[in-house]
Computed example of a mutant assay.
Amino acid sequence: MRFALGVEYDGTAFLGWQRLSQPGTDGPPTLQAALEAALSSVADAAVETVCAGRTDAGVHGLCQVVHFTTDVVRDPRAWVLGTTGRLPQGVAVRWCTPVRDDFHARFSARARRYRYRLLDRMVRPALGRQYLAWSRRALDAEAMHRAAQALLGENDFSSFRTVHCQATHARRNLQRIEVRREGAEIVIDVQANAFLHHMVRNIVGSLMEVGAGERPEPWVAEVLAARDRTLAGPTAPSAGLVFVGPLYPPEWGLPDEVTE
């Protein structure tokens, strides 16, 4: 059978999602390796997983979607509770549901969503600091939002991807980007069909330049058009970034939080 899982995680202690060693061998701490070890323990057999979207070191996940195929008979509750009980404290399986054999966590998704939280005040945060980026500079969220709208649509995002990005091309369809202030924090929500390596963090770093008044709002559009990473702002810290989750068509019967 094939199953889909919804996985929540604090990425602070992990070197990103992707396993960096062969299945079943010791290697650097990654989320995929931890999840597969726990699933394999429940199954008493090797289990390999495919995720909706890989996240970088230090990035968190609200509802990462994963699929795996196994001949082992377990009900969804056993997969959820048994796997979570074998995972580090910062990782939990929230739900499990059987899916058709043609479901693919990555290729069946129509979109992915990220949220970035940023505290702009003179003093660094003490509470919740692993989930917040911090800026000493006061930022204008409204100016950041206006500047960000130039990124909407299908574009070449070469200016906002790391030089280590392995994607075959840089064209992505940015479907929504919203910047708003919530009390002392600035929240940035981004949705696209897919993302490049460091794309969200590089966009945020550039928007922060606008928010601080160091760049005019039209500058973001100029950077996008230039297709040159050296012209964009710095990469924003990973701590503020959460992978909210992918979105799938209703036909797959997944929970509402990942269905559009």
Results as ranks from 00 to 15, higher is better:
residue 86 R to A: 12
residue 169 H to K: 05
residue 184 A to I: 06
residue 123 V to I: 14
residue 240 G to E: 03
residue 104 H to Y: 06
residue 247 L to G: 09
residue 240 G to Q: 03
residue 117 R to M: 05
residue 196 L to I: 01
residue 193 N to R: 09
residue 54 R to K: 10
residue 250 P to N: 11
residue 41 S to C: 15
residue 96 C to A: 15
residue 61 G to S: 13
residue 76 P to Q: 02
residue 2 R to H: 04
residue 115 R to M: 03
residue 69 T to Q: 14
residue 112 R to Q: 07
residue 73 V to K: 09
residue 94 R to V: 15
residue 248 Y to M: 08
residue 238 S to E: 14
residue 7 V to K: 06
residue 33 A to S: 09
residue 95 W to H: 13
residue 195 F to S: 12
residue 136 R to S: 09
residue 10 D to G: 00
residue 189 D to A: 06
residue 68 F to K: 08
residue 152 L to I: 12
residue 207 L to G: 01
residue 247 L to T: 11
residue 156 D to I: 02
residue 11 G to A: 08
residue 97 T to A: 13
residue 75 D to V: 13
residue 198 H to K: 14
residue 29 P to N: 01
residue 225 A to T: 09
residue 34 A to K: 03
residue 9 Y to G: 03
residue 58 G to E: 07
residue 192 A to H: 11
residue 114 Y to A: 03
residue 165 C to R: 05
residue 179 V to I: 10
residue 3 F to T: 03
residue 102 D to W: 15
residue 178 E to M: 06
residue 156 D to P: 04
residue 65 V to I: 13
residue 111 A to Y: 00
residue 73 V to P: 00
residue 80 V to P: 02
residue 174 L to F: 10
residue 84 T to G: 14
residue 49 T to V: 15
residue 57 A to R: 13
residue 200 V to P: 04
residue 120 D to S: 11
residue 9 Y to A: 02
residue 248 Y to T: 10
residue 161 R to V: 07
residue 37 A to G: 15
residue 182 E to C: 13
residue 136 R to I: 02
residue 53 G to A: 15
residue 25 T to P: 00
residue 123 V to C: 03
residue 65 V to F: 04
residue 17 W to R: 02
residue 165 C to S: 09
residue 31 L to H: 00
residue 128 G to W: 13
residue 7 V to T: 01
residue 56 D to H: 04
residue 7 V to R: 01
residue 35 L to S: 04
residue 217 E to H: 00
residue 173 N to Y: 11
residue 9 Y to V: 00
residue 239 A to C: 11
residue 110 R to Q: 14
residue 220 V to N: 01
residue 119 L to E: 12
residue 210 V to N: 03
residue 210 V to W: 09
residue 190 V to M: 14
residue 53 G to I: 03
residue 74 R to Y: 03
residue 38 A to V: 10
residue 121 R to N: 02
residue 107 F to P: 01
residue 180 R to P: 01
residue 17 W to C: 02
residue 244 V to M: 14
residue 130 Q to P: 03
residue 236 A to Q: 05
residue 186 I to C: 06
residue 252 W to G: 10
residue 201 R to A: 05
